[in-house]
Design a binder for these strands. Structure first.
Length: 955
RNA sequence: GCCGAAGUGGCGGAACCGGCAGACGCGCUCGCCUCAAAAGUGAGUGGAGGUUGCUCCAUGUGGGUUCGACUCCCACCUUCGGCACCA
């Protein structure tokens, strides 16, 4: 073998003898890391160039908030991203890996109040410190495109977006009950209220409801499009969370007329149950409540409304709570059958969803069912069960011959149980399936029933068998008649207000009385018999034709509330004029600057409210005196478009970013960040992009093509890191002691990136050892050869080299950094041993060392650069092409053939790779282990799997 | 309650599409080196038994499918995350 051209895939260099004098003795990360970081900056290695000749790759990691100190969590999010970005670059892409700072937000303001530091000063000091800390990571960030969101040059464009959205009807102001955080003293978007105690996403304080006039973005205009993930490759988890958050419901809007003549609009997902609507329920806050309440009910209604107001949302929304409500004295008319039905108010109906009013169909809605039972409201099944189930309890003493009934049941194939009913004696608990059984059973009851008794069948059929015949419960009137008769027969049931209430007292019947299936329509006038699959569609069409309803789609998603009653944010660029009303600030007047001389007092109120200079302005329309909007924007607005800003930060043109550069870089190819933003930032930024598209700023639909969510790094105690717990790991200390490369690599080695996991201070020592061994094997002297290297040894070394290139490549592609490092460690262990053999004097050794350094480069950029220079690779290792592998060279020449007898490993044979299956079968059957374990048995079968395992089946 | 993810040695975790369970690392044990220690380095390390180049048991629990199951199916338990009277 001769070196140049000996193999096109080899990364071979002229063979080089190392001498002790040029040998670097020790790996000292503290020396090499700053050295190379400086060199990278000085040589402009990571300056951004829009190079049309290269394929671009926009790799983005969620921007950090300017908290002041870089946390190991930042490293956990950023170091693996950098590794993947560096890998892409070596693969030949023009990689854009920008960084910036999310710089507006309440902590800055709190610092101002507490310590008298201006938020701007506090923030920019933090930015400076974080920038310094970030630079120790040795990442390939495009610092030349950094953006800080609190600078006027940036927030001018955030305000510009507000104006554009306003112009396009996507921003509006409305008085509404909104969530307010008493700790942060500001309103929050619905997405920023978390957990079952409804706490503020930032500070954890439970929120309260307030009626305020606030600015909203019409994110709901895009609800359907936001539910479409077909154009992006995002994790299932995020897609599910966003889908659940938006929650689309398809149904119908139906108008019910009140007896007073008012229109009462309700939304229902079950228009097919309209004939079963036996009462209406309004949210206590519903605007019609006051108007409709009759004088007799007034006191009770007022009391209930007041009490509902007093209650917190958590109390109100507790699902296990007993239903409460009050009849308001008024009636509505069911448009499908003209039936007069009472109107109630109850707090289980929420003003914030649908129309704040519902038709109650107690037979097919769990909540309505509970409510009807409690208040004695009528219940009529109008949808047939789909499971065909019916039940019947043959009461003790109600039939002529219980044993004869049992015998007949057995003949009919009906299941029953004979059990005592209280102290009354034995009864039969009968469960029926299907029409035929039910009919036969009713006939049997009819024949057996004693005078002065009745029995009933409930479920798919509701039939009451009296001594003079059976009566079906197929209308409310029939129900009343049946109940009256039952009361006459057996006085103990006289307290029941409805037939269902009577039946509900029997535990055995409960699961048969109510269901929410889509079944065939029953008891529904002309629609009776409409099949379940088409019932909803047919009824909706008919409603539309009748002019009393129409198809409707509702979302759980609310419009995005963006007003914040804080100073440290981008001021909403709006002006209030007594003459002209709400007037937008003209584009040429942007940015609306935050006044620097604001006073920060612990009043809880925004200093802007009292700042005369800021507050007073002139109306852009009429020139008269006017007031500015004092609310600022949700900081999620800043981060909704930052990846556009990075393309040309603080752009001076007439749009927010350079269209030319945008065309080259956008959209983001790969985004990484925490899952906690699933229904906030990640939803808002999708909305922004769609709105930007409709405004004509971009020509694509989604901001980020691929997304990966990393997990969370925990303290050594497996708890969330926090100062109070004292389990915080400081990256600065790690850089100082073990180096950035070891810290980066350890974070990637902990486990799967998307799972996160606890920090382990001994674990990182292992990585440090690994790096020392890499250093040693590359820089240490090669022992004198003891003989000639054999072709076999050379092939073995090249095999593992090429296998490792393949493994590492595949792992980085899939963000499996932990197994990537395991592969590198195995590889390093191998070549450390090989170094003492004659192969260390062959070109294959050079290939191995070069490959090792190149494969380590994305993960540990500094040590790789130093070692690359040492082996004469030239500057820079990060500009080298990623090593390629040869399948041919990576192929195993021998494999371990596993011999199993009945699924248990009984022998292992070393055989040449690629033998045909029957050959493998033969070898396996002849093996020592096979013979021993099949003795006395007959070999029934032998299965060859994957060319490396034979399972012999012997009986 | 509903939806989703996950349960593998002392620990973090490997195991491609159903085919050698425990890669790699930490820790631990015993060597070497050293006056000694640290560092480094060699060997071992799932459990139980044993006649010590042997057997059995093991991937949360219990069933099932299969020649063969950490992997697929059913039920259950536990943990974590999201949603929660959404009409």
């Amino acid at each position: 073998m001769s070196c140049p051209g000996w193999d096109p895939l080899s990364n071979c260099l002229p063979h080089r003898r190392f001498t002790m004098s040029e040998r670097k003795i020790k790996y000292v990360p503290q020396e090499i890391e700053p050295k190379w970081q400086k060199r990278w900056v000085d040589s402009g290695l990571y300056s951004t160039v829009e190079d049309p000749s290269k394929e671009k790759y926009y790799f983005l990691t969620m921007l950090p908030y300017t908290s002041g100190d870089l946390h190991i969590g930042h490293w956990y999010a950023m170091a693996p991203s950098d590794t993947a970005a560096r890998y892409r670059r070596m693969k030949g892409y023009n990689v854009f890996f920008p960084i910036g700072f999310d710089a507006f937000g309440l902590p800055a303001e709190n610092a101002a109040i507490k310590r008298g530091i201006h938020p701007h000063t506090w923030t920019m000091d933090n930015v400076a410190n974080m920038r310094r800390q970030l630079k120790t990571m040795g990442a390939m960030w495009a610092w030349d495109r950094e953006a800080v969101t609190c600078l006027p040059e940036y927030y001018k464009w955030t305000q510009w977006f507000f104006l554009k959205f306003y112009e396009h009807g996507l921003a509006y102001k409305q008085e509404a009950p909104v969530d307010f955080c008493p700790q942060c003293n500001t309103t929050l978007a619905r997405e920023q209220v978390w957990g079952d105690d409804r706490h503020c996403e930032r500070c954890g304080t439970p929120v309260v409801k307030k009626d305020l006039n606030q600015w909203f973005f019409r994110i709901t205009n895009y609800a359907d499009e936001l539910l479409d993930f077909s154009k992006i490759d995002w994790p299932e988890r995020v897609r599910v969370m966003q889908t659940n958050w938006i929650r689309r419901s398809e149904g119908a809007d139906v108008v019910f007329k009140t007896e007073q003549g008012d229109d009462m609009l309700i939304f229902t997902t079950r228009p097919d149950t309209l004939w079963g609507a036996t009462f209406m329920v309004l949210a206590p806050e519903h605007p019609l409540v006051d108007k409709l309440t009759t004088p007799e009910q007034r006191a009770q209604v007022d009391e209930y409304v007041a009490q509902a107001r007093r209650q917190s949302d958590i109390e109100r929304e507790a699902t296990d709570k007993e239903k409460t409500g009050v009849f308001i004295g008024a009636y509505a008319v069911n448009p499908v059958n003209g039936r007069r039905i009472p109107i109630w108010i109850a707090d289980y109906v929420l003003m914030s969803y649908g129309t704040g009013a519902i038709m109650a169909v107690p037979a097919h809605d769990e909540r309505d069912f509970q409510f009807a039972l409690k208040f004695g409201l009528p219940i009529l099944p109008v949808i047939k069960r789909t499971d065909g189930l019916s039940k019947s309890l043959v009461f003790p003493g109600s039939v002529k011959d219980l044993s004869a009934v049992e015998g007949k049941l057995g003949e009919l194939g009906i299941t029953w149980e004979r059990k005592p009913v209280g102290a009354l004696g034995d009864g039969l608990f009968v469960t029926l399936h299907g029409e035929a059984q039910t009919d036969a059973y009713i006939a049997l009851l009819q024949a057996q029933i004693l005078p002065g008794n009745w029995n009933e069948v409930v479920g798919t059929r509701f039939a009451f068998v009296f001594d003079d015949g059976a009566r079906e419960f197929d209308s409310l009137e029939a129900g009343e008649a049946i109940l009256a008769r039952c009361k006459a027969i057996w006085p103990p049931v006289r307290d029941n207000r409805t037939l269902m209430e009577m039946l509900y007292h029997l535990e055995f019947y409960r699961d048969a009385l109510f269901h929410a299936d889509y079944g065939d329509m029953i008891n529904s006038g002309a629609f009776t018999g409409t099949p379940g699959e088409s019932a909803k569609r047919q009824v909706t069409a008919w409603l539309k034709q009748q002019g009393v309803g129409d198809l409707a789609v509702r979302y759980r998603l609310h419009d995005w509330l963006i007003s914040r009653q804080r100073y440290w944010g981008a001021p909403i660029p709006m002006i209030y004029c007594d003459h002209c009303g709400i007037v937008p600030v003209p584009y040429e007047d942007l940015p609306v600057l935050l006044p620097e001389d604001a006073e920060f007092l612990p009043t809880g109120e925004s200093p802007l409210v009292y700042h005369e200079g800021f507050l007073n302005t002139t109306c852009p329309k009429c020139g008269g005196p006017a007031k500015r909007e004092t609310d600022t924007m949700d900081t999620f607005m800043c981060s909704s478009w930052y990846h556009y800003a990075y393309v040309s930060p603080y752009y001076q043109g007439d749009v927010p970013f350079d269209p030319e550069k945008g065309r080259y870089w956008l959209p983001v190819d790969q985004y990484t960040g925490g899952i906690e933003h699933a229904t906030m930032h990640l939803m808002y930024t999708r909305f922004f992009t769609k709105a930007m598209r409709d405004i004509g700023l971009v020509d694509f639909d989604e901001p980020m093509k691929r997304l990966f969510n990393q997990g969370m790094i925990l303290g050594e105690d497996s708890e969330k890191m926090s100062k109070s717990r004292g389990n915080v790991v400081n990256p600065d200390d790690l850089v100082a002691t073990l180096g950035a490369d070891a810290t980066r690599a350890y974070l990637m080695f902990i486990g799967p990136w998307d799972e996160g996991g606890p920090w382990n201070s001994l674990g990182i020592e292992g990585i440090s050892r690994f790096l020392n061994r890499v250093w040693e094997v590359v820089t240490g002297p090669i022992p004198e050869p003891k003989g000639q290297a054999t072709d076999k040894d050379v092939a073995a070394l090249r095999r593992i080299t090429h296998q490792t290139i393949r493994r590492v490549t595949d792992d980085i592609e899939h963000f499996q950094f932990n197994t990537m490092l395991a592969a590198l460690m195995e590889y390093n262990n191998y070549i450390v041993k090989a170094k003492n053999t004659p192969v260390a004097h062959t070109p294959a050794w050079d290939e191995a060392v070069r490959s090792l350094v190149l494969l380590v480069a994305p993960t540990c950029p500094h040590i790789a650069e130093e070692l690359w220079e040492f082996i004469g690779g030239g500057y820079s290792v990060h500009q080298q092409p990623w090593p390629a592998w040869s399948e041919e060279l990576a192929k195993e020449e021998a494999i371990t053939l596993i011999v199993q007898i009945n699924g248990k490993v009984r022998d292992r044979l070393t055989v040449p790779a690629g033998l045909p299956d029957d050959e493998l079968k033969k070898l396996a059957l002849e093996s020592e282990g096979a013979k021993r374990y099949t003795e006395g048995l007959t070999v029934v079968n032998a299965i060859v799997a994957g060319g490396r395992l034979v399972n012999i089946v012997a009986r």
